[in-house]
Amino acid sequence: MCSINIRQANIHDFKELTEIWFNASVKAHDFIPESYWENNKVNMQDTYLPMSEVYLLENKNNIYGFIALVGNRIAALFVAPEQQGKGLGKLLINHVKSIRDNLELNVYQQNTNSVKFYDSVGFEITEETFDEDTQSKEFLMRWERVFK
């Protein structure tokens, strides 16, 4: 892969980011009905992404993934399914770590690949939570910069 660029997303990117979110969500969350993700596409594109600080990964005109922050909370981190496993999620995490001193996120407990990923980039499970919308158990995970 040639040069990868991280930039702040804008309203013109949200339709494509929503497609990445949908495709990656369906793949990673087979324990949640696909209809849940389908029913939330409009909210993702028109409400959640616009209210977030969103950074995307691109190469020329191709967008490969994105991370969305609301304050110090990672509200979303998604990489296009065909681009997963290439270190792109780690690039996005490292980018937001460079602009925040602490971060937190919720991840579904059944999404073991994501739990392992967040653990590998320095996040620690701090509590168990429950997502009412999907009736699924989650972990709250946190990362904090260590000042030396």
Rank of each mutant, 00 (worst) to 15 (best):
K41D: 04
H95W: 10
S120A: 13
V121P: 09
I99D: 07
I32M: 04
V70G: 04
N113K: 14
F117G: 08
E58W: 00
K148Q: 12
A24C: 02
G122H: 03
W21E: 06
W143T: 02
L69Q: 05
D46R: 14
L69E: 05
G122P: 02
K90T: 15
F117T: 09
S136Q: 15
N106Q: 13
Q8N: 05
F147H: 11
D13Y: 01
I63H: 08
A80P: 00
E128D: 14
E124T: 12
S114E: 10
L105P: 00
N106R: 09
Q45L: 09
N111C: 10
F22V: 05
S25T: 11
D133E: 15
A9Q: 06
E19Y: 04
V26Y: 10
G89T: 08
A68V: 05
F22L: 15
L140N: 13
Y48R: 04
F123R: 04
F117Y: 12
V115L: 09
P81L: 11
P50D: 08
A24L: 09
G122F: 04
L17W: 05
E124V: 12
S52N: 11
I6G: 03
Q110C: 01
T129D: 14
T112R: 06
L88A: 00
L140H: 07
F123N: 05
N39L: 11
Q110A: 15
S25M: 03
I11P: 01
W143N: 03
K15T: 14
R7W: 01
V54Q: 00
I67K: 07
S98W: 10
I20H: 02
N39P: 10
L69V: 08
T126M: 10
E58R: 12
N61Q: 14
I67L: 11
S25W: 00
V96P: 08
I74N: 02
K148H: 09
F31H: 04
N23S: 13
S114I: 10
R142I: 07
D131W: 07
N43T: 08
A75W: 00
T18Y: 02
I99L: 06
I67M: 06
I4C: 06
R7Q: 13
S114W: 04
G85M: 09
K27I: 13
L92K: 07
E38W: 11
E127N: 10
G87C: 09
E138N: 14
L105T: 05
W21V: 02
G65V: 10
E34A: 15
V146K: 14
I4S: 09
M1T: 10
L49F: 12
G71Y: 12
F130K: 08
A24R: 01
L49G: 08
F31D: 01
A24W: 05
